[in-house]
Design a protein around this nucleic acid. Structure first.
Lengths: 208, 208
DNA sequence: TTGCAAACTTAACACTGTTAAGTATATTTG
DNA sequence: CAAATATACTTAACAGTGTTAAGTTTGCAA
């Protein structure tokens, strides 16, 4: 069955071409410039062809949002070397903020825009793997902090929501320009890191 | 000049009618259903007439976002009676979360969507009064907490960003369904309030 | 009555996601 | 080998979006 095999490869190829075009549009021109027609232009097919490979635009955006999680993962590569989990938690927060500010488009897709979650809600059986992995990583670090008595004991889920909530709040308010008229421009990023420092210090058992 | 006066009243009237129609569409059908053509349908004028009263759609959305801040203000009416500033801070956070969950559309406009800030950026001289007032309220409560030694001393701006960051993070992650696949549905709101409780308790000087 | 200005509309541009229906090509079946 | 079918793709259209240039109607002043 060499023929059908080659055909399937070609089909997969075109699917990948569509994704590549989407990523290119997305990275170069931002979220609102990813349109089916522009993708079609790049791959040199008619717009409707895209629908033979992806159910709708949300499905494409979902794939892009997964790529975003991969990209974020790369920010935390060197983190496993750090022994002290509280310092690891701090670095994790710093990296989250840095990733969010450096990749606002991917950040939007991952944590702000409804599109990828809409796709996920279409079949309720499947869960949000990327998000689950990321949150579990955070929970693991927090558990280790509690275990080693670096922070006061408490419900890990609550702690995780609090920490994630704060860094996400900072990044999304910054990216959506809600600090711009309140905090002088060059102070926004340092202020965000100060807020994170404050959180870590406040949790730090040894500082009491 | 009774005639020109009446005319100006009529003009102001139509401007208000446009806003009323926008609020209605916005409240009843959500953000993405506020379109110039639908507004025109309601006020029974052609779509282009809207442009004689508002420069563009952003200008309308900016007005709506201000109404949102008014609505949020109403949530905090009874707050001034509370003497203990730390309890007031806690209630402020609870109200913020409640407002955000109960009015997701207004919340979007106020803190998530770029549109109102784009409008603001058009003339850089004017500042974000609504946001400024709200943030100053938070800072005042925090200052009072420090003054009365209810929380450890620290930079008020940093504290304000941290607190606002966390509650905004929680609300926006919840509204954009980022908790849905990670936290069982009926536990989302309690978990958010637990996270807020944790923050307040961690700050609370007396609990150490 | 003419002239002008204000208020409003028509028609269009350039887009968007999406779908029904049609076509051409290649493969399978009788 | 010819006819039927399945695959891959396209055309044309629907229903909508924000926005603008140009044209029309209305009412008031000179």
């Amino acid at each position: 069955m060499g023929i059908t095999e080659r055909k399937e490869k070609q089909k997969a190829d075109l699917k990948q071409q569509i994704l590549d075009a989407s990523i290119r549009l997305f990275s170069e021109q931002g979220y609102e410039n990813v349109s089916i027609r522009k993708i079609a232009d790049i791959i040199q097919y008619s717009p409707t062809t895209v629908y033979l490979y992806f159910k709708d635009k949300n499905e494409i955006l979902f794939k892009l949002h997964e790529i975003g999680f991969q990209k974020m993962g790369e920010y935390n590569r060197e983190l496993f070397d750090i022994k002290n989990p509280l310092i690891r938690l701090h670095k994790l927060g710093e990296n989250y903020i840095r990733f969010g500010l450096e990749n606002p488009e991917y950040y939007d897709l991952m944590f702000i825009l409804p599109a990828p979650m809409d796709k996920l809600r279409e079949d309720p059986s499947c869960n949000w793997e990327c998000g689950d992995t990321a949150l579990n990583g955070l929970k693991a670090v927090l558990s280790e902090c509690i275990e080693k008595k670096l922070i006061p004991p408490g419900d890990v889920n609550t702690l995780a929501m609090a920490v994630w909530g704060m860094v996400h709040g900072l990044v999304s308010l910054a990216n959506r320009r809600r600090f711009e008229k309140l905090v002088p421009d060059p102070e926004i990023i340092p202020s965000m890191n100060k807020a994170l420092n404050w959180l870590i210090n406040t949790m730090d058992q040894s500082s009491n």
